[in-house]
């Protein structure tokens, strides 16, 4: 394979229409020009470098990309960044304290061995976090927790320890 030769030149830009978006991400006001078709997931990950939000399907089933939009859990892969204009977005990076101390939900995951590869984990946690923030009462029965988790796929854990982690998180947060 030869490599020491002139590299090809090409137009670096795409022909995408763009728009100016302004949104708050993890408390910080972000103003950027973005392609109108850019998914919020890609915006967070590649424009802002917040790679804790993962992408597992880009069609709404796996939940890996879950973030909060205006305090409510949502799929960032099914949201254009254009649609998030003017909103407040919270990602997994905002959960732990500044000094790195884990949020009680994260702590519960660790104690319960509720993650293996950790790919589904941020989405799982943001979904749970969103649910814990709702005023609706939590159903902490086995079935209730499983229903809460449904919408987030995990291929590693068989969910058993994630169910336990939700219960533990509820304890740590004084919700039981």
């Amino acid at each position: 394979m030869t490599s020491r030769r002139l590299k090809r030149r090409f137009a670096e830009t795409a022909e995408d229409p763009t728009l100016q978006v302004s949104l708050t991400v993890n408390g910080e006001l972000i103003e950027r020009t973005a392609s109108v078709r850019m998914l919020l997931s890609d915006f967070l990950r590649h424009e802002l470098g917040l790679t804790g939000t993962h992408v597992g399907c880009e069609h709404g089933i796996c939940g890996c990309c879950t973030v909060l939009i205006d305090g409510k859990a949502a799929r960032s892969c099914l949201t254009l960044v254009a649609q998030a204009d003017g909103t407040e977005v919270t990602t997994i990076e905002a959960l732990a304290a500044e000094d790195g101390k884990l949020h009680p939900i994260q702590q519960a995951f660790k104690e319960s061995h509720a993650l293996q590869c950790g790919y589904c984990t941020p989405g799982m946690i943001m979904n749970i976090f969103g649910r814990f923030n709702e005023p609706e009462p939590l159903d902490l029965s086995d079935q209730g927790i499983r229903t809460m988790l449904s919408g987030n796929l995990c291929r590693c854990t068989g969910y058993v320890n994630i169910v336990a982690a939700v219960r533990r998180a509820a304890q740590l947060l004084g919700r039981v």
Binding site: L50, T51, G52, H54, A96, G100, Q106, G118
Partner: peptide, 20 residues
């Protein structure tokens, strides 16, 4: 408890698409 967990839990895991 696993050594790797805090980083994965904080969203600081580095998967291929996360490499800058």
């Amino acid at each position: 408890e696993r050594n790797i967990d805090p980083k994965l839990l904080r969203g600081e895991g580095v998967f291929v698409d996360d490499i800058p």
